[in-house]
């Protein structure tokens, strides 16, 4: 028995939309421009979006709805899961990047739970990053993988660090030797695998809870300067963990009056 849904008043329509899961609501949005407008004007959703490169996932109270793309009309909106995913659907798009932005707009999502930079061109990632910056979307966690597909990481970094990343920024990709970058905004946690460009000035400006710098160029004097400041009351109130791997840390000059390696001071050590 059909129901003329669009004859419902707006508040009732919204109530029905509230009861739809992401798959049904997305398919509904593709029925007509009018219904799509109606869904998009239904206010922001507290759903979160995840970009895994090969999949776009809508996270609803911890339950994941996996969206995959296809250009084959015979496979549009199929829920069979050839890759073994549960809660899976294929949607008509050329690539996951456009699908991601479309899902973001259709559901008026304001938070991206996880953004994984792994497969795709620089142009695609740039478009994605610009889309997130323009929409002022909060990104909880960003991961830049070390795969060969991730190109022009130096240019990409400039865009990615302009995003509103709040929880974690993790970069496993190596930067070209001449790369220089100034991080202005800091999420709670940063882990940079190739951090030679991360200067003592940036470290002194950081507001993180946890910092892990691998491949650093920081020296004993830098660490000493930082620790002297950290010791002062009110400095780095958020910082709980600092891990620096640098070949420039040696046993030639003191850090806090001690010559490295410094060990067995409670559970902390500098070696």
């Amino acid at each position: 028995m059909p129901i003329a849904l669009l004859k419902f008043p707006t508040d009732l329509l919204r109530e029905v939309f509230q009861q739809c899961d992401p798959f049904e609501l997305y398919k509904l949005s593709k029925c007509s421009k009018r219904i799509q407008k109606s869904i998009r004007s239904g206010g922001t959703k507290n759903w979160k979006l995840i970009f895994r490169g090969n999949l776009v996932i809508v996270s609803v109270d911890g339950l994941h709805y996996n969206f995959d793309v296809t250009e084959n009309p015979d496979e549009y909106f199929k829920t069979e899961n050839p890759r073994g995913y549960e809660n899976y659907i294929t949607i008509p798009f050329d690539d996951n990047f456009d699908a991601f932005l479309d899902l973001l707009d259709t559901f008026r999502i304001r938070i991206v739970e996880y953004l994984r930079i792994e497969f795709g061109s620089f142009e695609q990632f740039s478009k994605l990053a610009r889309g997130l910056i323009e929409r002022n979307i909060e990104i909880e966690e960003v991961l830049i993988e070390s795969t060969p597909q991730v190109k022009k990481v130096d240019k990409l970094m400039t865009l990615l660090t302009q995003m509103n990343t709040t929880q974690k920024f993790k970069c496993l990709k190596k930067f070209p030797p001449k790369f220089r970058h100034q991080m202005d905004k800091f999420p709670k946690n940063i882990l940079i695998y190739s951090s030679f460009w991360f200067t003592i000035d940036q470290l002194l400006e950081s507001t993180c809870v946890r910092i892990e710098l691998h491949g650093s160029m920081l020296k004993n004097q830098d660490i000493d300067l930082f620790f002297q400041k950290w010791k002062r009351s009110g400095s780095f109130p958020n910082l709980r963990w600092l891990e620096i791997f640098s070949k420039n840390i040696d046993d030639k000059s003191p850090i806090l009056g001690m010559i490295p390696p410094i060990e067995n001071y409670g559970n902390r050590s500098i070696s």
């Binding site: 059909p2 129901i3 849904l5 669009l6 029905v16 009861q19 398919k27 029925c31 007509s32």
Partner: peptide, 23 residues
């Protein structure tokens, strides 16, 4: 409203258009 939403569970956009009479 949940009952209304359930009417289109697992349906294609074309089927949804018919069930909910969407022009």
């Amino acid at each position: 409203c949940k009952q209304v939403a359930m009417m289109v569970k697992g349906k294609s956009p074309e089927e949804i258009r018919e069930i909910w009479m969407i022009p």
